[in-house]
Amino acid sequence: MILDLKTKVDKLGIEDRVSRITKRSLKSEAKLQGLKMILSMIDLTTLEGMDTNKRVEQLCYKATHLHQELPELPNVAAVCVYPNMVKTASNSLKDSEVKVASVATAFPSGNSSLEVKIQETKEAVFNGAEEIDMVISRGKFHSGEYNYVFDEIAIIKENCGDKARLKVILETGELGDYDHIRLASEIAIKAGADFIKTSTGKIKPAATLPITLVMLEAIKDHYYNTGKMVGMKPAGGISNSKLALQYLVMVKETLGNLWLDKHWFRFGASSLANDVLMQILKQKTGVYQSNNYFSKG
């Protein structure tokens, strides 16, 4: 593999662009359209040590029944769970279009042998996962073993086969500066990632607008060079509609309309859906809403 390690990120440029994007404001009809789009792009996530089958079933129910008072709403894109919950989720969602996503490869640390990671991936795919969210080996990345990181992603991709799309989590909170994030993005894209994803949600800072922009730029350059599209998934810390709308604006202005689709852009979030629902209801009724009237999920 030959990587162009010279791509440096213009830190001030990135941050300046983000600050201009955050000053936009979407109103009325455009806002409503944006909010519905956000809903359709959410990966409803539960990744806790205390997850139970019932909890996952409840989340799957929520994924397909967002709010009864607003039946015309789209469903979320996917439900994201730990590998041992894939069967449960897959059973609960078998009659719907909502995808089952599973984290794999010793999430969230990624500190395990390659054999174990491959086995875990195979099992998740076998049990019905249609999307695999893998983590890269940050330790190896920091040791400069970029080839190891590349090969690992490639072999997991191979094991996903044509049954599952692969999202590669960079865990940007552990990568350091923008140059590292850009490099990790390129490694993941070239190794065959279908999506690149910012964070596990277990480390702070998780997704931020500037980090996402750096990754979007990597996707854009790859698209210009090869004509191939790669998806983007910011995850962690996106809990309100206003911020999510800013992400949408950024995607549209960096990559264009092609990426404004759940096939190419996702939000990894657990509490975002309720905030979006409350905003939609506020938009329709003019009344500020309360969390008490929405399912916890």
Partner: peptide, 8 residues
């Protein structure tokens, strides 16, 4: 009125 109709 906004206070009066606020659901929270």
């Amino acid at each position: 009125p906004h206070l009066a109709q606020h659901m929270d």
